[in-house]
Design a protein around this nucleic acid. Structure first.
Length: 726
DNA sequence: AAAAAAG
């Protein structure tokens, strides 16, 4: 164990293992007593700790009860019972001071305490697992008990044929200690307190390094270059150098104007030579001609956004829709998977999963994906987008599998990026069985869990990587994930992946993927979202060539099976109204704008006797997974979430979506609403606003093309009960 | 403001 590791494990709020964990469970934070320690805070802790012990006891009892099969009536969320009254912390205060500042990500996140590590709510979770668990398993992820794991299609059936632990979930417990030894040399000499920013910007040393264009083709066959032997590098700035392959200052300025230096990618080195950008609008197929791109219109496509890390609410602008090839449901009537070009194994698997015949969006995109084209797909929430890219992707990899199939340590050939871990997991649950049906392997790469298991899976060799940008980029930087053979890249929720904070990592990751397939074809990019709009231009312009654009005709909001309502309330009545709305029979998803409010609401609903759980970024990953599973399994009927749950997450039979806070963006409204009314079922969306927001809300609904009555209500009104019962 | 990275 390096000194770095020691301090690391006792960072405030950081989930700990082994000895440290026992210390924490007893209310001590090892190391934090020493002024030399990073976790040191001069006093201040004492009274709070006492409350903690009580809280932990209570929570532990509650969890034990709740965990017992057929245990007592669940009248209170174990998570919230006995919760101490926190002294409000300045957001990001202590955590970012000690643990944060690792890099610009923390700077971007600014005030926030630093992801899972600094989770304010982790502690509630800890006692629930019981100390003996940790001793037995040596893992803080012991909470991932098997019986609690979400069902995964086809998983068990294939367990035996898998390479050991390959493609497994990261949070099952027991991370790989050998990995620690492997990593030990790597962390030596690394300055733990140096912010990434410091070595990521303006350091003279950087200029020694070869500029990006000197590296020649990034194409992915220059392995030696891609995995520099770290030992050859000057020791002290090891990290810095490692960073270089991905480094920021080599990146073209955002928005991707200076393509000239790049080796011709698909033939557009500069804007002038760029072949019909209109391809993006589909006019290579449709001839829309609406895309007159004179030099002057550029700023429309690349709104000059301030790069500043400070966040300012942006106006909710409705960007132009993409001109797309329309499919109608009638057209695809009677089409089979085989007609679209999928093989027998995949067809059988799809049918085993309940997808008898293709949905329209699938029928539209699959042939183009198989033909090797770049594809943009827009399908309403719940319209089957995952299979639309997952199935043909697997088919393509299988066809071109060659002899490398199942080779140890083979590099992945497909990459699927998602904005949240839960979505990545969910995508894998769909794609993995399809891949398995033809002998291909997937693995999930996402943060919040130890990386050992993921790295292990990669070193055994996988075909499809599914994950979130942060960890993927991290493993690439570490040289543990080689994307140079990735010939199909999928962005789910692509418009969201182009939002500030996501775009740049995504661009860096895509730049690491292959440009050409071994056969010399262009590597494919597939972008999918229910709200695909001009926002993806930044990626389309840089990475896609003449993409096919598809959407399903007639899938507008008016045709959806969702009932929209807006309730005008007094601010002080909000919680009460939510209680009344959430006390109905069906599954209810409540959206709050901030984690703190989500947590508070969950607590208050629990106190009101409504079994409620929560999902947001202040929970550790084990807890997140478990809480979502509680809703899926029906153990609780109410989940309060931040927008982490807004996109993509599929839970059967959510009958009511409550927006405790109005969304900032019309697209967010559509995605939140899309958690209900899935696959033709009915659902209701209620948005609570105060009178001051009335106008804004009206405009937002207009952009979303939704008409909803606005009605004023007070707690106890019959209308509320009607909606709750609906 | 949310999300996304440390074994």
């Amino acid at each position: 164990m390096s000194p770095f590791n020691k301090s690391n494990s006792s960072r405030p709020g950081r989930p700990a293992t082994g000895q440290a964990a026992r210390g924490q469970a007893a209310g001590r934070k090892p190391g934090s007593k020493s002024p030399k320690h990073r976790g040191y805070r001069p006093e201040a802790d004492q009274p709070k700790k006492n409350r903690w012990e009580t809280a932990e006891r209570n929570a532990s009892r509650a969890q034990e009860q709740a965990d017992r099969p057929g245990g007592r009536r669940y009248d209170r969320d174990d998570r919230t019972s006995g919760r101490p009254n926190w002294e409000p912390r300045t957001p990001g205060g202590s955590n970012s001071r000690f643990g944060g500042g690792r890099d610009d990500r923390d700077a971007r996140n600014g005030a926030r305490g630093g992801n899972d590590r600094g989770s304010r709510y982790d502690r509630d979770d800890r006692p629930a697992r019981g100390g003996y668990d940790r001793d037995d398993r040596g893992s803080r992820f012991g909470g991932g008990r098997r019986d609690e794991r979400p069902a995964r299609g086809g998983d068990d059936r294939f367990r035996d044929e898998r390479p050991a632990r390959g493609a497994d979930r990261g949070d099952r417990g027991g991370y790989d200690r050998r990995d620690d030894r492997d990593r030990a040399p790597r962390t030596e000499g690394r300055a733990p307190f140096v912010r990434r920013d410091d070595y990521g910007s303006g350091r003279p040393a950087r200029h020694d390094r070869p500029a990006r264009d000197d590296r020649g083709s990034r194409g992915g066959f220059d392995r030696d270059d891609r995995r520099p032997a770290r030992d050859e590098r000057p020791g002290r700035f090891d990290r810095d150098d490692r960073r270089s392959r991905f480094s920021r200052d080599e990146r073209p300025a955002r928005g991707g104007f200076d393509r000239d230096e790049r080796p011709s990618r698909g033939g557009f080195g500069s804007d002038e030579r760029r072949p019909s950008r209109g391809g993006f609008t589909g006019d290579d197929r449709r001839g829309s001609g609406r895309e007159q791109r004179g030099g002057q219109s550029r700023s429309d496509f690349y709104p000059a956004r301030d790069e500043a890390s400070s966040w300012a609410p942006e106006a909710d602008v409705k960007l132009e829709k993409l001109q797309a090839e329309m499919v109608t449901a009638a057209e695809v009537e009677g089409t089979t998977w085989g007609d679209l070009g999928l093989g027998d194994n995949i067809t059988r698997q799809l049918q085993a999963m309940g997808a008898e015949t293709p949905f329209p969006i699938q029928a539209a995109t699959i042939p183009d994906v198989l033909a090797g084209r770049d594809v943009l797909g827009r399908g309403r929430t719940g319209s089957g987008k995952t299979i639309a890219f997952g199935a043909p992707l697997v088919e393509k990899l299988m066809e071109n599998g060659g002899g490398k199939k199942r080779a140890m340590g083979r590099a992945p050939r497909a990459l699927i990026l998602a904005p949240t871990r839960e979505l990545a997991l969910q995508i894998d649950r769909t794609v993995q069985p399809i891949a398995r049906s033809v002998g291909l392997f997937t693995t999930q790469i996402y943060g919040g869990v130890p990386q050992g298991r993921q790295v292990g899976a990669l070193s055994r060799g996988v075909d499809i990587v599914i994950g979130t940008p942060g960890r993927i980029e991290d493993l690439v930087e570490q040289g543990r994930l080689d994307l140079s053979e990735v010939v199909v890249t999928v962005l789910d929720e692509a418009d969201h992946m182009c939002d500030l904070g996501f775009l740049e990592p995504v661009q860096r990751i895509i730049r690491e993927t292959a440009q050409l397939t071994p056969a010399g074809d262009r590597a494919q990019k597939l972008l999918f979202s229910a709200t695909l709009d001009r926002g993806v231009a930044k990626l389309v312009d840089e990475f896609l060539v003449k993409p096919a654009v598809h959407e399903v005709a007639g899938e507008d909001q008016a045709s959806a099976t969702i009932d929209h309502r807006v309730l005008l309330i007094e601010q002080r009545d909000k919680v009460r109204v939510i209680e009344e709305l959430a006390s109905g029979e069906g599954k209810t998803l409540v959206f709050a704008r901030t984690r703190a409010f989500a947590e508070q609401l969950a607590e208050e609903l629990g106190d009101a006797g409504i079994p409620t759980t929560s999902l947001h970024g202040d929970l550790n990953q084990g807890r997140r997974t478990r809480n979502l599973q509680q809703l899926t399994s029906g153990r609780v009927n109410v989940l309060v979430a931040t927008d982490v749950a807004a996109r993509g997450i599929h839970v059967d039979d959510i009958s009511l979506v409550i927006q405790a806070d109005m969304p900032e963006e019309y697209k967010t409204y559509l995605h939140r609403a899309g958690r209900t009314g899935r696959a033709g079922k009915e659902g209701t969306v209620v948005t609570l606003i105060t009178r001051q927001r009335q106008r804004k809300m009206g405009e937002l609904l207009g952009r979303a093309e939704i008409s909803a009555p606005m009605e004023q209500v007070r707690p106890g009104d019959r209308l509320i009960a009607e909606i709750a019962g609906a």
